[in-house]
Amino acid sequence: MTAIPTLALSIGWGTTLAIKTLIILAIIPLGALILGYVFLLKMMSHMQSRLGPMDPGGFHGWYQLVGDGLKFLQKEDIMPAQSDRRVFAAAPAVVVLSTFLVFLVIPVGPDLVDKSLNVGVFYALAVSSLSVIGVLMAGWASANKYALLGALRAAAQLIAYELPLLLAVVGVVIQAGTLSLQGIVLSQQHGAIFGFGGLGQPFILTQFFGFALFLVAAQAELTQTPFDMPVAESELVAGYMVEYTGFRFLFFFIGEFGTAFGFAAIAATLFLGGWALPGVHGTWADILGPGVLFIKLMAVAFLMFWVRFTYPRLREDQLQALAWKVLIPLGLANILLTGVFKVAF
């Protein structure tokens, strides 16, 4: 549908920017809400033989998180007396900012992408690691030993798992031949499995190692169990977030689940084909694209949260050993194999 760019030209640059920004600003909390409700409140509850919220909103408690958000907004803003006030206030903003920047490049249709960059994947991964700074700021500014411990653990962990994330993605990039996310989706749509072009070629079939590696690294980047040492509930009681109350904590929460939404979307785009559905092109792809991406994203998120609710957490040194000694060699081997196969076939 070429009407959208034409419409954009006639509206004007500033208004387009405003609209795009607002759309993403709306999607982040909405995505966080959906993920939080479906997986954290309902799926986790049923895995634990209980029901989860049932009363708020009447139908299976769908209003619970909205109510929680409103509750957080009206709470007192408590800052520890000895905290560094500006850094304390800025930390949640930095985390949410990194989430916002990731969403800019995710395509939801052939023409529906906020900013189609040629180096989309590179940009997305680079920008998602900004949250490390936010975590460190939060831990240091809290003037709390528990928070500091959590932040230091988080910094070490997040930096360590950037590499397996990157290496998993490089395999996909080699196969697609482009760093642009839109290009990766298109190459999956127009690819062929052993000559059969009907289903396209979702990269999960050839890059299953990469997919597994990406999921593990994404789990660690989101500090979710089994990698949630920074937020170890039974030890540090929310780790680096322990001194945050009210809307600042809400920002962290939205940042965490928003980033989960973003990573699931990126995984769906890289490995499952993104918005592409076999046989659907043009205008229909623009209409169905968001829905298709949403379904694939929820499937990936299901896997991530399923693992989160089942496994205990790894200790910090075991976690680091896993990253450096196991995942990075596997990632390098994956790249090697991908390169060989790409050249050979």
Binding site: R50, S234, R313
Partner: peptide, 12 residues
């Protein structure tokens, strides 16, 4: 299980 990090065994 909960102290080690797994949330579900506690409920079971």
């Amino acid at each position: 299980g909960l102290q080690v990090g797994a949330l579900t065994p506690a409920f079971y």
